[in-house]
Amino acid sequence: MTTARLFAATLGLALHLGAHAADFTVSSTDIAPGQTLAPAQVFQGFGCTGGNLAPQLSWHGAPAGTKSYAVTLYDPDAPTGSGWWHWSVFNLPAGTTSLPGGATAGTLPAGAIQGRNDFGDSAYGGACPPPGDKAHRYQITVWALGVDKLPLDQQASGAMLGYMLNANALGKAQLTGLYGR
């Protein structure tokens, strides 16, 4: 195959996957895109006083071949040099299309696992940027995966999970909320 044909085939595949990725969306009754998070999604501790409740999420339009999902909540603006992982849930069965507000280990679908957040817990940890910082972006990403299960447990770090997600992603949908104090 010539370089030009290889490039054309690769571009065609990328455009095909991109078209399907555009169909994959996530929404929330608790978070409006680009808007300030409600007190319910703010951390309780570290000087923050919130409800520390995971937001309700719904998604649809996942790529064909999706075998499981993962959800991550990440703050790329945290002053750490590596961002801040607030929440991760993985090994959600392929039939899952939503999570209720306030989801916990006891209310997640069977087999789903919450990874370790940067607060040190395997649970949701809400927004809590330093006082006086500009509003931080809280990126909720639903990952459509081509594997049934990731070989990780509840002690998985955000970095390890991120590696596994990027290695197995068929597509992803993202919603970003803001919060500052």
Rank of each mutant, 00 (worst) to 15 (best):
F46W: 12
T107I: 09
G102Q: 01
S88C: 13
L73E: 01
G146F: 08
Q44E: 07
N117M: 12
A169I: 07
L13P: 11
Q41R: 00
I31K: 00
A123M: 03
G12N: 03
A169G: 02
H60T: 14
P109S: 06
T96C: 08
H86Y: 05
A123F: 02
N168T: 09
P33S: 11
H86R: 03
H16K: 04
V42D: 02
H16P: 03
V89T: 06
L37P: 04
A4H: 13
S28E: 00
Q155N: 15
T66C: 08
L150M: 09
S157Q: 03
G111S: 06
A32P: 05
Y163H: 12
G61M: 09
P55C: 07
L92C: 05
Q154I: 08
L15K: 11
Y74R: 01
L57W: 07
G162W: 00
K134Q: 08
S28Q: 11
Q44R: 06
G158I: 07
S98I: 13
R181N: 14
L37Y: 00
D133I: 10
S82I: 11
P93Y: 12
L11D: 15
G81R: 03
A62G: 09
L178K: 09
G146Y: 07
A54E: 09
H16S: 12
L13S: 12
G146M: 06
L37F: 00
L145V: 07
L161A: 04
P151R: 02
Q154V: 12
P131D: 15
A135Q: 10
N52Q: 03
I140W: 04
A54Q: 03
L15Q: 13
T97N: 07
L11R: 15
H20S: 14
T141V: 02
L150Y: 03
P79M: 08
L92F: 10
P93H: 14
A14Y: 13
G34E: 13
M1L: 09
T107W: 08
T72E: 05
M1Y: 08
T96G: 09
S27F: 14
L17D: 15
P79R: 04
T66Q: 01
Y163F: 10
G65Q: 07
V142N: 06
W87K: 04
L165I: 07
G120W: 13
V26T: 10
S58H: 12
F90L: 09
L161I: 06
R181G: 04
G106E: 13
A9W: 11
P109C: 10
L150P: 06
A64C: 08
P63A: 10
V89N: 10
F43D: 05
V142W: 02
D75E: 07
P76L: 06
L178R: 06
N168C: 01
H86F: 05
N52E: 04
L6C: 05
D121T: 09
A40E: 13
A14W: 15
M160Y: 11
Y138Q: 15
L175H: 03
S68N: 10
D133C: 08
T66I: 05
T10A: 12
M160I: 11
A62N: 04
V142C: 12
G111F: 06
F43K: 02
W85H: 01
T25V: 06
S157K: 03
G81N: 04
A14R: 11
L145T: 02
G50E: 12
A144W: 01
G126D: 01
D77A: 10
Y163D: 14
A167D: 05
A127C: 07
